[in-house]
Design a binder for these strands. Structure first.
Length: 619
RNA sequence: GGUCCAAUGGCGCAAUUGGUUAGCGUACCUCCCUGUCACGGAGGGGGUUGCGGGUUCGAGUCCCGUUUGGACCGCCA
């Protein structure tokens, strides 16, 4: 099929040209003797005009029919400034229907009214919408720009396996049963972390990969089970060199894709600062409302929540919201949000005509109230939201409220791009559930040289050469320098509470590799989907992924995940245990040689014959 | 694992809070119209309200269960 031009590219300069076009009928407008059709391809829309000789043929043409058209480009009588092609139209000489279309279940236009679930079900039609095409084309440009930069900086693109070994720590693995070795499993990579470090040991020096990664955790609007990371690792560069190279890469990206010059170097703030000032390790600094510390104002307060907090060495922090007078109901909602975010409660003051009001006013002295007004610098018509709790809890909860209120008040400007680095992350965090220190990043993260003595005395205070790249309150990516000395690595495992045997069991091949001249190295990974999401100006990661999963990890179109044939299960020597009743039956069969994972996580041994018998007994 | 919200023609919503034949927009079909571009005008077809049970003279509306979807917390970098 011949085509001379793409529809969206035609301009007044093409006037008089004979063109041959292909496209879908986006809209048909009929005027008795006269007909217009908006013909759409991936580049845009152009208007076709037909005289009355086509009336009979056009009767058969409906929305989303695919047409092949020959005609002449002419200047329009009435131009449409809304369309890039609005100055011209195609006077059709002849056309054919290439293919017909059923009536589509959703309207194929940017302003479709279909809900996301319906769009997912007919994703192939949803992706015909110009805005979706624009998003995916932009995503492709992003990849192109990043690849260009890395290729020009002597990086080698290397693929690592999708079927790998399950590693403990971090997110839950997706498991793939091995047919060749029944009872064993591959794991899909959460990231190519170990492989990329091994590639440094191999001497590649600079590696990158657009890597599909998998995490079997619950989804969110900005989180998918399988997603794409730009994975990067380098040897011999220090933290500063890595960050500034990445800044150059992102600067080029913003220029290539958005045509925007962003200033470098990016703002750098320590994790402590970010938590203290923004209550988040991925601060959005496009707006103010920074967290303030009011602890010293209330050291002798009689107000019970404050008094308790002071006694427990906690902090009293707050944010000031301008032009904010929440109703009692809104205050109630804010308070329950604060509880949701882990705080004990929320104290709200409204400031109007030189006086604070709010339920806590009567419990505080006039001196304390005056001091609060002065210290917070609250303006008339504003409000102060305060939380008293342990430092991290108070910061986290206030940071989340700060975010919510900014969204509510429309303070997040989608056209502003604020990049920054959060650095010096803590090495460990205390796990209440496991009652031990766990890695905040991963156990190969390099602790700050000066903090190494603290590993013995106060692990919670050890900071690392780990860094996160943050854009508009989203974590774009993160990474670290890695440990390359055996002694230090052993020490970290010791703090994490692993015995040498456990370490060998969990990370054996990886630890062994480190004994062969490992170079100092470090790297990071960027979430490609999130980058695309923010640059496309959407709130949902699903708008920049061609075929995403919904919030419950399903694909409404293909209906994955699905059940499989018994034959397939038999080949894998797997059986499915649905509920307690069936589990009891299996247990009753007793003994055997096939491990069966029960729905409660417990594993029992059963023979295949026994399972077959049990299945028959079920029928 | 938890909390909250929703489910009504193809699609998106409404139904005066338990009361006549479930309504609107859009899409669809037919006809009219030579400059529209969210074209306009006239007419038409299409739903028994996710599923199961209950309360009631009467249920889209109330209750219980269930399924599906969404937001968030936990989880996840």
């Amino acid at each position: 099929m011949n085509r001379s031009h793409y529809n969206g590219t035609l301009r007044l300069s093409n006037q008089g040209e004979a063109v041959e076009l292909i496209g879908w009928v986006s809209k048909k407008r009929n005027f008795g003797a006269m007909n217009f059709i908006d013909l759409r391809d991936r580049t845009g829309i152009v208007q076709l005009v037909f005289d009355e000789s086509f009336n009979a043929q056009l009767k058969d043409v409906r929305q989303e029919y695919l047409l092949h058209v020959k005609g002449l480009v002419e200047e329009r009588k009435d131009k449409n400034p809304q369309l890039p092609t609005g100055e011209i139209e195609i006077v059709v000489k002849e056309f054919e229907i290439v293919n017909s279309s059923k009536v589509t279940p959703i309207i194929i236009a940017d302003e479709t009214d279909a809900l996301e679930d319906t769009r997912m079900k007919y994703r192939y039609l949803d992706l015909r919408r110009p805005v979706m095409q624009k998003n995916l084309i932009m995503r492709s440009k992003i990849v192109q720009s990043l690849r260009e930069f890395l290729d020009h900086h002597d990086f080698t693109e290397i693929e690592t396996p999708v079927l790998g070994r399950s590693t403990p720590e971090g997110a839950r693995d997706f498991l793939v049963p091995s047919r060749v070795h029944p009872g064993t499993f591959y794991a899909l990579p959460q990231s190519p972390q170990l492989y990329k470090q091994l590639l440094m040991i191999s001497g590649f020096e600079r590696y990158y990969q657009f890597a599909r990664c998998f995490r079997d955790e619950d989804l969110r609007a900005d989180r998918q089970t399988d997603f794409t990371q730009l994975d990067i690792e380098t040897s011999f560069l220090d933290e500063n060199q890595i960050l500034s190279m990445m800044e150059d890469m992102l600067k080029k990206l913003m220029k290539d894709v958005k045509g925007i010059d962003i200033p470098t170097p990016f703002l750098r703030m320590t994790w402590n600062e970010a938590m203290d000032k923004y209550g988040s390790d991925k601060p959005d600094n496009r707006f103010g409302m920074e967290l303030q510390d009011f602890t010293n104002l209330f050291e002798h307060s009689e107000f019970v929540p404050f008094k308790n907090t002071i006694e427990n060495k906690g902090v009293i922090k707050g944010i000031v919201v301008e032009d904010f007078a929440p109703s009692n109901k809104e205050i109630k909602n804010l308070t329950s949000d604060a509880r949701k975010y882990g705080a004990n409660g929320l104290v709200v003051f409204k400031y109007k005509d030189g006086a604070l009001s709010g339920s806590a006013v009567k419990s505080l002295s006039q001196e304390e109230l005056d001091a609060l007004v002065a210290a917070s610098n609250v303006q008339d018509g504003g409000a102060i939201l305060m939380i008293s709790d342990a430092w991290l809890k108070a910061c986290n909860a206030l940071g989340s409220l700060r975010n919510d209120i900014a969204s509510l008040k429309g303070l997040k400007n989608k056209d502003e791009f604020s990049f920054l680095w959060v650095v010096d992350f803590p090495m460990f965090e205390w796990s209440e559930t496991e009652n031990r220190w766990v890695s905040q990043h991963h156990p190969f993260t390099m602790p700050k040289r000066e903090d190494i003595p603290l590993l013995d005395t106060n692990p919670g205070e050890v900071k690392t050469n780990a860094y996160d790249c943050v854009l508009n309150g989203y974590e774009l990516g993160g990474g670290s320098l890695r440990i390359y000395e055996q002694d230090l690595q052993d020490k970290i495992f010791e703090v994490l509470g692993f015995t040498p045997e456990q370490t060998q069991e969990k990370f054996g091949f990886f630890i062994d590799a480190f004994q062969y001249g490992t170079p100092p190295h470090g790297g990071l990974a960027f979430g490609l989907d999130r980058i695309a999401m923010i640059l496309a100006g959407t709130d949902s990661i699903r708008d920049v992924i061609a075929f995403p999963k919904n919030a419950s990890a399903r694909d409404p179109m293909s209906e994955a995940p699905n059940t499989v044939d018994d034959v397939q299960l038999d080949e894998l020597e797997l059986a499915i245990c649905i509920d307690d009743k069936q589990r009891d039956m299996l247990t009753a069969i007793q003994a055997g040689n096939v491990p069966v994972q029960l729905s409660n996580g417990e594993t029992i041994q059963v023979s295949l014959d026994e399972i077959r018998q049990w299945k028959e007994s079920q029928n």
